[in-house]
Simulated scan of single mutants.
Amino acid sequence: MLSKDTLFAVSLFPYLGFLWFLTRSGQMPRLALIGFYGTLVFVAVTIPAGIYAKVVYGEALANIDWLHGGAEVFLTLANILVVLGFRQAVIEKQSSQQ
């Protein structure tokens, strides 16, 4: 059975493929696409934060609230961009049909 760390690392490859296809399709709302890429920023921040939590506090990232919350801000921002991007696309589609 794969460890959670190995599964996390391996899961990046399908996500990168997903981003590649989204980008090449040209059909994704730009703001939503930026949000999906923002998820990579979350990953890039979470990995060193997890290492810091382990080295400095001897704990998992999830157990250090201020550090975990700081990392989660990046995921929240990415999700907001995805939602706003799709919202904008729906509004534009609705206005073009009237």
Rank of each mutant, 00 (worst) to 15 (best):
G26F: 11
A53N: 12
F8D: 00
V90G: 02
L81P: 02
L61R: 08
F13Q: 02
F18S: 11
G26A: 15
V55P: 04
G85P: 00
P48G: 04
A62C: 09
F21G: 12
V41G: 13
A9C: 01
A60H: 15
W66D: 14
R87V: 14
W20L: 11
L7K: 01
V10K: 02
K4G: 10
Y37F: 02
G26E: 12
F8K: 03
L75A: 06
L84P: 01
Q97A: 15
T76A: 15
L61V: 10
L40R: 08
P29S: 03
T39S: 01
L81A: 09
G85Q: 08
K4W: 10
F8G: 02
L31D: 03
V56S: 12
G17T: 10
Q94N: 08
M28F: 00
G70N: 08
N63C: 10
T6L: 14
Q97V: 05
I47V: 15
V45C: 02
G17M: 10
R30K: 14
A60D: 14
S11A: 08
G50W: 02
V45E: 04
Q88G: 10
L19V: 11
E72I: 12
L12E: 00
N63M: 14
I34S: 01
S95R: 03
Q97M: 14
A62I: 10
F86W: 07
I47R: 03
G70A: 10
A62F: 09
A60Q: 14
A53W: 00
N79W: 00
R30G: 14
L40S: 09
A44Y: 08
F74Q: 03
W66M: 11
R24K: 15
R30A: 15
F42M: 01
Y15S: 01
F21Y: 15
G50H: 01
K93C: 07
R24W: 10
R30F: 09
T6H: 06
A78Y: 00
I91H: 11
V56H: 13
Q94Y: 02
F18V: 11
Q27P: 04
P48W: 00
V55W: 12
F42G: 02
L61A: 09
T39W: 00
V56W: 09
E72C: 10
S11V: 05
V41L: 15
E72L: 12
R30Y: 08
D65A: 15
L31T: 10
G58R: 05
L16A: 11
G26C: 13
G70V: 07
Q94V: 05
L77V: 15
K4T: 10
I51R: 09
L61W: 05
L75T: 06
L19N: 05
Q98F: 07
I80V: 09
L75W: 03
F36M: 11
F42A: 01
P29W: 08
R87Q: 11
E59I: 04
W20R: 09
D65W: 11
T46Q: 02
G17C: 13
A49Q: 04
L84D: 01
L31S: 01
V43W: 04
P29N: 03
V10E: 08
S96K: 07
G17S: 12
L33G: 00
E59T: 09
E72S: 13
L33E: 03
R30V: 11
S96C: 04
K54I: 08
